[in-house]
Design a protein around this nucleic acid. Sequence first.
DNA 1: GTAATATTTCGTCAGATGCAGAAATGACAA
DNA 2: TTGTCATTTCTGCATCTGACGAAATATTAC
Lengths: 121, 121
Amino acid sequence: MESILSISKALGEKNRLRVFLALMHTKELCVCEVGEFLGLAPATVSRHMSILCQAKLVDSQKRGKWVYYSIKPTVAPELLQWMQNSIVDSSLVAEDGKRIESLVREYQDKDCRKVCSSEER
Amino acid sequence: MESILSISKALGEKNRLRVFLALMHTKELCVCEVGEFLGLAPATVSRHMSILCQAKLVDSQKRGKWVYYSIKPTVAPELLQWMQNSIVDSSLVAEDGKRIESLVREYQDKDCRKVCSSEER
DNA sequence: GTAATATTTCGTCAGATGCAGAAATGACAA
DNA sequence: TTGTCATTTCTGCATCTGACGAAATATTAC
């Protein structure tokens, strides 16, 4: 039951939910990208991401100076399916999707994106 | 997305989650039973239940003086499945299950249980 | 109608949570 | 080692949330 509780708490905050949904189709983001995406200070982003990590919803991986976040492979598929079904006609999610894509393109040239070019995505 | 958010907020509080899980195998409870179950004042229970209702997780039905709560039939099956899978070895959920059962037996003789004896369960 | 009972709404308080900025930590480069 | 940059932890502040009791509302019994 504790897992339901911590996951629900983690996803029950708008900014954290937006990041999680963004990760569902962008695979990987670092703190600076999330900060840009949400318009929040790095410290705040770090705090939010650690809550998502503690809920076992995302993995963090440190590569060089940067920390990269991605959805933890062990997240229950029913949970992901439910979320997927629940966002089909959300305009904000659609906007966020486009914003994340252009943001990732924009960060293509920055240092944090060069570190991981050999990896998947 | 708003639905994910409101559902997560609703289930991200321990007492509300416990009531919801209890409803998953007791079908129907009235405010007084939930109050006894959680050890909370009626006013507080009412508030919690209205949050679950607003999140479209439970239905409320007034019969006589009493209000009965049950899981809304439209709740996404993937969500229920995820929760079901997540509680298989939770000792607190098991205890709660027994407590609810004996509590319902105890309330069998009370007025609020006599009203609905013709209905399912 | 009035009284009794169940529930909801309102007012208030204590504790939790989100936020930013400052300081601390960790990693790389010179 | 020292400097720089990315991130995290700490601190303080504003807002949100859960709790109760009291008052309001709704329904049944008389």
